[in-house]
Simulated scan of single mutants.
Amino acid sequence: MLVLLPPSEGKRAPASGPPVDLEALVHPSLTRKRRAALGALERLARGSRPRALAALGLSPGQGAEVERDAGLLQAPAAPAGEVYTGVLYQHLDLASLPAGAARGAGAEVLVASALWGVVALEDRIPAYRLAMGARLPLRPAPRGGLASWWRPALAAALPDAPGELVLDLRSGVYAAAWRPRAATLVEVRARDEQGRPISHMAKAVRGRVARRVLEAARPPATPAQVAALADDGAGRVALHEPARAGGAWVVEVVGPAAGAAGG
């Protein structure tokens, strides 16, 4: 099983420690792309401040984020599971996972990233600011943005075989960078009783589902098993078959479970 998490906009900057070692990150076939993205981001951050803010989608008051991006190769790094924060990671609560579940997380979880492609939770990275929708001065300039720029490398690097299960908890912009062709894909969504998406609570729902999957005595092997783990008794869970061949199964958390505060 492979669990794909989104990055978080908010990140906890490591206070100390050696800098990132690109060669040590998971899936070393991505190193060349990582080096190119990192170099482009640092060039952007060291240039015109207004241009950098616009390219990164930041406001004038977020200049500190640009300054941080200008020195990522020298910045202290820490495990990605400690650097990424935000609602999903609060509800996943990696630090409190039982030992067996924590080992499973280290082996089965990847975090999508516009800068790194993907990282494992134990991969040491600095805090950075780069969303998949940002515009980097890459050479040659990519067509279709960072998602399409990463797509060929991720397709070559990530596991994708019939019979495998991929639990995709990413947002759409990160999912656009890679989707399995052969493995069974399962997505998790949240909606209210009227069928309206509850986007502001989807991250909390996905964080709780990820935790239950990692804590399970056996990793789920089917979409139905994921749906069973998603049901915590606080609401209803529906399982929808793919709308088209090769599409994703959808585990839909309905009603109170989507709005519960837990975690």
Rank of each mutant, 00 (worst) to 15 (best):
M1E: 10
V3Q: 00
V3S: 01
L5D: 01
S8W: 03
S8R: 05
A13L: 08
A13W: 09
P14N: 08
S16T: 12
P18E: 06
P19W: 10
V20P: 15
V20T: 12
V20Y: 03
S29V: 13
R46P: 02
G47M: 06
P50F: 00
A54K: 06
A55Y: 02
L56E: 12
S59K: 11
G63S: 11
L73R: 15
A75R: 14
P76W: 03
A80H: 05
A80K: 05
G81E: 10
E82G: 14
Y84T: 09
V87G: 10
L94A: 13
L94Q: 14
S96E: 14
L97E: 04
G100A: 12
G104S: 04
G104Y: 01
G106S: 07
G106L: 06
A112M: 14
L121V: 03
I125A: 15
A127V: 06
Y128R: 13
R129V: 02
A131C: 06
G133D: 13
A134N: 02
A141C: 00
P142H: 00
P142Y: 00
G144T: 01
A157V: 07
A157H: 05
D160A: 08
L169F: 04
V173F: 01
Y174C: 12
Y174H: 13
W178H: 09
P180D: 10
E187Q: 12
R191F: 00
Q194D: 15
R196Y: 08
S199A: 15
S199M: 08
M201H: 15
M201W: 15
A202K: 12
A204P: 05
R206A: 08
V209C: 12
R211H: 07
R211M: 08
A216F: 01
R218N: 08
P220M: 10
P220W: 04
A224C: 04
A224H: 06
Q225I: 01
A227I: 13
A227G: 13
A230H: 14
L239I: 07
H240V: 13
E241H: 05
P242A: 04
A243R: 14
A243I: 09
V254I: 02
G255W: 00
P256I: 03
A257D: 13
A257G: 09
G262P: 12
G263S: 13
G263W: 08
